[in-house]
Design a protein around this nucleic acid. Structure first.
Lengths: 158, 158
DNA sequence: GTGACTGCAAATAATTTGCATTACA
DNA sequence: TGTAATGCAAATTATTTGCAGTCAC
């Protein structure tokens, strides 16, 4: 879980001021069950801070991302959502139906690095890993229906 | 390597026509060393097909992506680039300096899936993995310089 | 010949920036 | 009080769509 007070003290440590707007954005993301677009964050944070502007949301998300308090989450087609960052460890599983995000730990991707290095000659510094699937709720809901014959094209053949 | 003639026959198989514009886009991506934005593709493909419109590039990239002929590539900050798709296997290593893309195989991420399932209850269907680093050219170039003290914030603590 | 494909321009959508004003520390 | 932060509106940038004309099959 994203710990509010930790992040708040991080803000000051890095010379950022603690403002109503930032707290509102932070609180919304901290409580988020699903990955949220900047617009969604804006909409919800407005309930805590009615005069919050969208530009401020963008500026705040940028800062929180830098501090590691939140994580950018990509999706197959569209892009740029944000979710709470746990403790900076772990990776995300994103529900392709409802956007819910969960975190798991125990990533062993770093074991792949030597192999990738050998094959490509690149000097690998970081990695981005995200699993996609359905959360249990959506899975059950779908099981009820006949079949949703979606064009979900899998992107990974390995 | 992306095999042009294969993709071209794929096009017809799926009822798409073979046009100058599509061939130009395809050729540019097939020859790309680095991930390219739609705008970049447009710029280069225009040299093969001067009256090519940007909208057509978008439409063509969409089709090629569906066919699996090219791959969407995400980056840490911005988004949506495209690269040749190898044979649909393997993952990408992207150079954070020059954008060059290489592919490696032997991904073992699927081994993570049971763990993720246990921890989150999600039904995982696919995954997205990308390594980031510097290609050897950029690495050597950087080694020459003192140090580029960039604010490269690592996104992964595992 | 005809329907899919295209270019262009206009419409949307998403994000960033400038600047006068406000409010944290 | 001084400076960083904000809201708003305008500016960019990225992407999609409508439509009349064109071209592959």
């Amino acid at each position: 879980m994203l710990d509010l007070s930790t992040v708040i003290s991080e803000l000051s440590h890095h010379g950022f001021k603690q403002t109503r707007q930032r707290l509102a954005v932070l609180e919304v993301i901290a409580g988020a069950q699903a990955r949220m677009s900047p617009a969604k964050v804006h909409e919800q944070a407005r309930q805590l801070c009615p005069d919050l502007g969208l530009a401020t949301v963008y500026r705040t998300l940028e800062i929180l991302d830098r501090l590691g308090a939140i994580r950018r989450v990509h999706m197959t087609d569209n892009c740029e959502g944000f979710a709470p960052a746990g403790l900076g460890k772990g990776h995300h599983v994103v529900c392709v139906k409802c956007g819910r995000v969960a975190e798991f730990t125990g990533c062993n991707v770093s074991k792949l690095v030597p192999m990738a290095t050998r094959q490509t000659g690149f000097h690998v510094q970081e990695h981005f890993l995200e699993l996609m699937g359905t959360c249990d709720d959506c899975y059950r809901a779908a099981a009820g229906m006949a079949n949703a014959h979606e064009d979900r094209r899998s992107r990974c053949a390995c």
